[in-house]
Design a protein around this nucleic acid. Structure first.
Lengths: 143, 143
DNA sequence: TTTGAAATTGATAAACCGTCTCAAGAGGAT
DNA sequence: ATCCTCTTGAGACGGTTTATCAATTTCAAA
């Protein structure tokens, strides 16, 4: 039985459209990628080293960038590295970060998300992903 | 007459608290930084080369990172470089970023800010600053 | 004002991340 | 099965940021 994953079809379509080829590596990386919410190329390299020790880091980068072009992934520069976000994954968390002790509280707020959509639409954008970080002091650090 | 800039006081306070010293270079870089809305270390290096040809690039990086720790600046990684945003000088600009062409649209939304405060309060936080970035495709990049 | 411990600087080396190169290998239309 | 093209792996490479370290500067205390 063949895979019937939506993303695999998206990839196949993209490859065909651009005269690219479906390789063992691309299938392998896609399968692994879809299990993540977001991952770096380096992390995926180590993760896949077990399954295929000869899979090159350059191939991971090339393939994750390919996924971005195909609309399956989304690159996001975070800290010093690039995070590749799995777009199909919906459970997104925003962060409240204490500048005193570094505590991170995750939250979700539908109303904020709705307003974000509104702003985007007003500017002709279609949102793929977002990042919201609130920095401040938690109650303990305020004494 | 001494400078009475709010940011200079913030810096002085941070330095004192961490047993750091106020140097000619730190004053120079702060003054230049406050004139910008956001800038890269490299750009600041070239800009300040006229005033002080011996100012090192490493010092710029160190100092801008110091400003981040002091809460005067905020680092934002975009593409291959790091942008240092001037937090104080800027109102509250959030960013809409096109993942296709890199265009950045700034926006403000009071309602979102209000909801952010609400979330923070609910979690016992007092917000100092925040970062909101919406990633997506602009109308041109969607064809 | 002089002194001295500790922090800072400038110059450059090194680390780091991501891309490029290219010969060898794999995909797939015919 | 063939052949043309795309892809891969390994390492070189380039640009950005950080680490190193001797010389210099700051600043608190004498």
């Amino acid at each position: 039985m063949n895979k019937t994953l939506k993303e695999m079809d998206v990839l196949r379509q993209h490859l065909e459209k651009h005269q690219l080829k479906l390789t063992r590596q691309r299938e392998l990386i896609l399968t692994a990628f879809l299990r993540q919410e977001h991952i770096t190329a380096e992390a995926m390299y180590h993760q896949l080293a077990k399954k295929d020790p000869h899979l090159g880091l350059a191939t991971i980068y090339r393939t994750l960038n390919l996924f971005c072009e195909a609309g399956i992934a989304q690159a996001r520069h975070f800290g010093t590295q690039t995070q590749y976000d799995n777009i199909s994954h919906k459970g997104h968390h925003d962060h409240l970060i204490c500048t005193g002790c570094g505590t991170i509280v995750e939250f979700e707020n539908c109303e904020i998300e709705r307003l974000q959509e509104e702003v985007a639409t007003k500017n002709g954008f279609v949102i793929q992903t977002h990042r919201l970080e609130l920095y401040g002091l938690c109650s303990r650090c305020r004494h």
